[in-house]
């Protein structure tokens, strides 16, 4: 019989952790395998993005379940949540949100540390490889699930000699939810 509601305090949700080096090395071997399989760097970039997208559309549910965040009221808030909560939660790094475009639809996430790319050196022949492109896909997939269509691309990459990692996020459309059924259904 139910009296007085559910047992009050819930255990804080646990996040499974993985050793950072195992993670880095596993990611590295995935990229290596993709290069071996596709032999075309552009195609590898595309595949990494797609893999990230598939992760993103699931990962957002876990994030929403565990982060205990409230509603974001603007794209600005959303970008902050990604940089200050989502990235620390899943990658154990945080990013800065900078370079806002005047109309507030474009910004950059700047990372100075990136566990995906530890121990990585990019050989000259793979200069076009966007090694961390999986992350661009994750962000795109996750935001799409909360009704924001965004475009993500890397504009700086420490592996290519820049002084930080900079992921440019452009809000293409903030979709309003529409009633999915027609009247006569």
């Amino acid at each position: 019989m139910l009296r007085g509601g559910p047992s009050g305090a819930r255990n804080p949700p646990s996040l499974e952790q993985i050793n950072a080096e195992v993670f880095t090395l596993t990611y590295g071997s995935i990229v290596r395998q993709l290069i071996a399989d596709f032999e075309d760097i552009e195609e590898v970039n595309k595949q990494l993005e797609q893999m990230g997208y598939n992760m993103g559309i699931r990962l957002v549910d876990e994030f929403l379940a565990k982060a205990k965040i409230s509603r974001c009221s603007s794209f600005r808030d959303t970008a902050d949540v990604v940089a200050k909560q989502a990235l620390p939660m899943f990658l154990n790094v945080s990013a800065n949100v900078t370079n806002w475009s005047p109309d507030q639809t474009e910004c950059s996430l700047v990372l100075t540390d990136n566990p995906l790319a530890d121990f990585v050196e990019l050989p000259e022949e793979y200069r076009e490889l966007k090694y961390c492109n999986v992350l661009a896909g994750v962000v795109r997939g996750a935001l799409e699930m909360v009704n924001m269509d965004v475009e993500c691309r890397w504009v700086s990459d420490m592996l290519r000699g820049d002084d930080c990692y900079e992921l440019r996020i452009k809000l293409k459309e903030h979709r309003d939810e529409k009633f999915p059924y027609k009247d006569d259904d």
């Binding site: 009296r3 509601g5 009221s73 009704n147």
Partner: peptide, 26 residues
């Protein structure tokens, strides 16, 4: 408030059940 992606869970319970907000969240 700007809309947020929705996922809806609807649990129909007996009318004597207490506030189930937390249960639904959990």
């Amino acid at each position: 408030n700007v809309g947020f992606g929705r996922r809806e869970l609807i649990l129909n319970t007996h009318r004597e059940a207490p506030d189930l907000t937390e249960v639904l969240q959990a």
